[in-house]
Design a protein around this nucleic acid. Structure first.
Lengths: 204, 204
DNA sequence: TGGTATATGTTGCTATTGTCAACATTCATC
DNA sequence: GATGAATGTTGACAATAGCAACATATACCA
């Protein structure tokens, strides 16, 4: 199924639309994204995208879903290193999470933008989001079993961790962190996760 | 300057627009917000809002600015209690911040939505945002002077705290925290700030 | 091989929106 | 009471989302 130029059919329009949307969001911004604009860039009629996405929100949902799947893959990489202690694992997950957001701004913006009002309308998106979150939950649970992470509602602890790395990511992407510190976003990520671990640790 | 019904002039249209926009964002969502819709609801011509706001983004900027001013007021209330230790103060600030976000979803959404692409276009907004952040910075600095908060770049520590409470707030507003836990958002806020304090504390 | 259902793309249309320009009315001030 | 400024209105234009009807290519089957 090759892309055939000048042919009636595009070849892989669905994929092309998603890629173009990602570029748009990265270079311009998400609020100006338009299906017609994307169609224009792809040299396709203004209604062609509707053969692949029910509406604009469905396109965003598809992108978000891919974003969560990719996020999970990134986080999974961290777990492949079996030499890490539970604390190191959680810290590494946090840093990796922030790295992901920064490296994939378009994905991350769509995943957590208010443009996707109702997650529940897209079950596969919800599933992908939950699956990436599961990695964090399980890692924390392991730490609790090893008695290096404080006991208590695992999901709640995971929410706190998630909130922290999500906050860092969003503030960074929204350019709320002063430019001088932008260079040291990695440093901030490490500081944040290090502090998080201290809050997670069992009291001695 | 009373609101005069059936008169040519509205009375206080600027204020009315902002209030109506807030209601819209709370009941519907920010992406569907339209100036014409607001004008319609206020029984005013579709272009009347342009006498008060240069464009749609300017309206959002005005709302965001008010949001930051109000946030600062909320946080300031915490500081008025002189009996708090630095740690308690920081914890209370964090909880108050989250309470603010939850109690004022429309404000908070606008303050941190991607719809306001360029903060720098609105200097007074930037100033209001920085001023509310200053409260956190100064409180942490005091804790450092009292040697109960770890030393290091104060602004960076403040960024971590801000990220955490921002993350909790955004995830809550975006309904990413499971409904069963939604009731206990206050509990989550307390847990998060308590963990944060442990990460901030000086090592013993 | 040829024919047909289906997937994919196009054209044309309507309703809505943001925003501009020109005009109307009221208010505030001298 | 007159006049300039503030505020509101009317009418226009371009862009957009999304629907319906139509066109073309593709896949699959007899």
């Amino acid at each position: 199924m090759m892309k055939a130029k000048d042919s009636y059919h595009h070849g892989d329009l669905r994929h092309g639309i998603i890629e173009e949307a990602k570029i748009w969001i990265e270079t311009k911004d998400i609020s100006s994204l338009s299906l017609r604009g994307i169609a224009r860039r792809l040299g396709v009629s203004h209604n062609a995208p509707y053969r692949h996405f029910a509406d604009k929100e469905s396109l965003l949902a598809a992108i978000a879903e891919m974003g969560f799947i990719k996020l999970r893959q990134w986080l999974q990489q961290v777990l492949e290193d079996n030499t890490l202690t539970p604390e190191e694992g959680i810290k590494a997950l946090g840093v990796k999470y922030i790295e992901y957001a920064i490296s994939n701004p378009a994905y991350y913006r769509v995943m957590y933008s208010a443009y996707l009002s109702d997650y529940k309308k897209y079950p596969s998106l919800e599933k992908a989001a939950e699956e990436s979150f599961t990695i964090l939950i399980e890692t924390i649970a392991q730490g609790q079993q090893a008695e290096v992470i404080r006991s208590g509602d695992t999901r709640e602890l995971a929410y706190v961790c998630w909130s922290l790395v999500h906050g860092v990511s969003m503030l960074y992407l929204d350019r709320q962190l002063r430019s001088s510190e932008m260079k040291s976003i990695e440093k901030l990520a490490k500081l944040a996760t290090a502090m998080m671990i201290e809050g997670l640790a069992v009291k001695k």
